[in-house]
């Protein structure tokens, strides 16, 4: 509850502060699935209030068992990673956009016939290139008389958005299963933790709902949840406020929204912890 309130308070605060902020970046869609010789596009828009240059790069990322996605050290890249970088083309790689100006980035896949069937994935990273003025901010205060000068530090964040580009070659299959769903009491309610297990040679992607057994209205929903091919399973945690927690049994339901998933639905009962 406290956490929710804090989140709402923060959202309100930042929505008030938003108009003065520059260098906003909008990217849509947030996930791309393609096959052997196809293409797609991503829209990038500068939603900030000044002209900004964005650099677009194709990078490798790894998911761990907690679902966290981390940059991958190039030295650890597998042949499949190298193939992904090789077959995915995109243009342009650098764009300068005026405020409110959108542009499309085109993505193409050219897979050689010899490429082994399977899922190949890289991530398209969109990043604003900071200009000199941004680097100078926050402006160091002018030294006041009698005050020692010291050091001042300007650390500029280069922040961006990464979306997966998934290429599926040949026969692919995959299935999601929920396991080990359990409830742990926390200060302001309860936490439902469940393991999303994956089998087959593709990633799974979908929506996780927490429901009272027999009810069709989710108590909580987490969208855009994936288990990539590098993990056999990943954990997902959902915190439920005390006032929303039913007395009866709970179930978790995962609905695949990946085009290859065909809307498959899996469910598991949530065990109540001691």
């Amino acid at each position: 509850m406290l956490r929710n309130l804090a989140a709402i308070a923060a959202a309100v605060l930042f929505s008030i502060a938003q108009p003065v902020i520059a260098s906003d970046l909008l990217v849509a869609p947030t996930r791309i699935v393609l096959d052997g010789n196809s293409g797609g596009e991503v829209m990038v828009s500068n939603t900030g209030d000044k002209t900004t240059t964005y650099r677009i790069s194709l990078v490798l990322r790894r998911m761990d068992a907690t679902g966290q996605i981390n940059p991958l050290d190039e030295a650890l890249a597998t042949p499949s990673d190298a193939a992904a970088l090789d077959i995915i083309n995109y243009a342009p790689r650098k764009i300068t956009l005026a405020p409110q100006q959108p542009q499309t980035v085109r993505i193409g896949v050219r897979a050689p016939p010899s490429l082994a069937p399977g899922e190949y994935r890289a991530h398209l990273l969109f990043r604003a290139v900071p200009d000199a003025a941004t680097i100078d901010a926050p402006a160091p205060d002018a030294p006041k008389p009698g005050q020692p000068q010291g050091m001042s530090i300007a650390l500029t964040p280069i922040y961006g958005i990464a979306i997966p580009v998934i290429v599926r070659i040949g026969a692919i299959e995959g299935k999601a299963v929920l396991a080990n769903a359990h409830l742990t009491p926390v200060a302001d309610g309860a936490r439902v933790t469940v393991t999303l297990q994956r089998s087959g040679n593709r990633s799974v992607y979908g929506t996780l709902d927490v429901l009272a057994q027999g009810s069709s209205t989710p108590i909580s929903t987490v969208k855009g949840l994936a288990a990539y091919t590098e993990v056999a399973s990943r954990d997902v945690s959902v915190t439920i406020a005390r006032d929303k927690l039913p007395a009866g049994p709970l179930v978790v339901r995962f609905t695949e929204t990946d085009p290859a998933g065909g809307g498959a639905v899996v469910e598991a009962k949530v065990a109540r912890g001691a």
């Binding site: 996930r31 900071p130 922040y159």
Partner: peptide, 10 residues
């Protein structure tokens, strides 16, 4: 002055 990089991953 310096820079650091942070990304939001879908």
């Amino acid at each position: 002055t310096g820079q650091y990089s942070v990304s939001v991953n879908y």
